[in-house]
């Protein structure tokens, strides 16, 4: 049972990196590739249908952590208090940028929320590198550590590459590249590598700190039957918004 829940946890965390990775990547590229307002609208419209379905993977990670690794949850989050707070604020700003950017028309308004998306994506990407490094050292190193910052830069670059590939897949040619679904899967795996590396290293430790069988059983009975629905909903998103002749519709809600 511990093994099943470790697998669930690993899939959720790696899935978050592979999926939310391209949302953040596109956010990072917004000031780079989105020189005109129209280009920025296209970039955001390309990721918009996926964002809500992608970011919840992290919510699920946190929920699983609370349910399956209750002793670690507080340790990890409280141990990295300033970093987690900063990342949460970045996440909030990124989301607010998406929801608000098209609600008013003014130049300044759009500029403000587009900047919030780019800044939030950057903060979150770098933050993830620092978090992974801190976790790999068993939270011994201080949250802000040169090696952590380096890893943050690596994660940021990986996300940007993944976001760029996504744009090439969903809007072929519009941003100078055309990419296949296979290439997107490859950069997704690449974006998830840092998280997968940490999970592999932490596996024995996590297995040893699982919640007792009674709790895991309740979680299994309640969650596992719903898992096919969760997978089905995600598949539905990918089928509905796959690239095609009018893949990106403008105006998009985000």
């Amino acid at each position: 049972m511990e093994l099943i829940w470790f697998a669930v946890f690993a899939v959720l965390l790696a899935g978050y990196f592979a999926l939310e990775g391209f949302d953040l990547g596109v956010g990072l590229l917004l000031p780079v590739l989105g020189r005109t307002r129209e280009a920025r609208d296209r970039m955001v419209a390309a990721v918009a249908p996926y964002v809500l379905a992608n970011e919840v993977w992290l919510v699920a990670v946190a929920g699983t952590m609370f349910g399956v690794y209750p002793l670690l949850e507080g340790e990890v989050l409280a141990g990295l208090y300033p970093l987690v707070v900063a990342m949460l604020l970045c996440w909030v700003l990124r989301d607010a940028g998406l929801w608000f950017r098209r609600r008013l028309d003014g130049r300044a308004w759009r500029g403000l929320w587009d900047a919030a998306i780019a800044f939030g994506s950057l903060g979150l990407s770098v933050g993830w590198g620092m978090t992974l490094y801190a976790a790999a050292t068993g939270f011994e190193a201080p949250p802000v550590h040169p090696a952590g910052l380096m890893l943050g830069v690596v994660v940021t670059l990986l996300f940007a590459l993944h976001g760029w590939t996504f744009l090439g897949w969903r809007t072929p040619g519009v941003f100078g590249v055309t990419r296949s679904g296979r290439a997107l899967a490859a950069t997704g795996l690449l974006a998830a590598l840092p998280a997968l590396g940490l999970l592999a290293g932490a596996m024995p430790f996590l297995l040893g700190h699982s919640a007792p069988p009674a709790t895991l059983n309740v979680l299994s009975v309640m969650v596992l039957p719903v898992a096919p629905i969760m997978v089905g909903a995600q598949v539905w998103v990918w089928r509905t918004f796959r690239p095609g002749k009018d893949a990106v519709r403008l105006p998009s809600f985000f």
């Binding site: 379905a53 970011e55 349910g67 399956v68 979680l219 969650v223 719903v226 909903a233």
Partner: peptide, 23 residues
């Protein structure tokens, strides 16, 4: 104890809610 309903909320309920809202 407390983690079980909270995990259920995030994993089952909110995960689906957000996915379906996007759709």
């Amino acid at each position: 104890v407390f983690g079980a309903p909270l995990a259920m909320e995030t994993l089952v309920a909110f995960f689906l809610e957000s996915t379906f809202l996007g759709l």
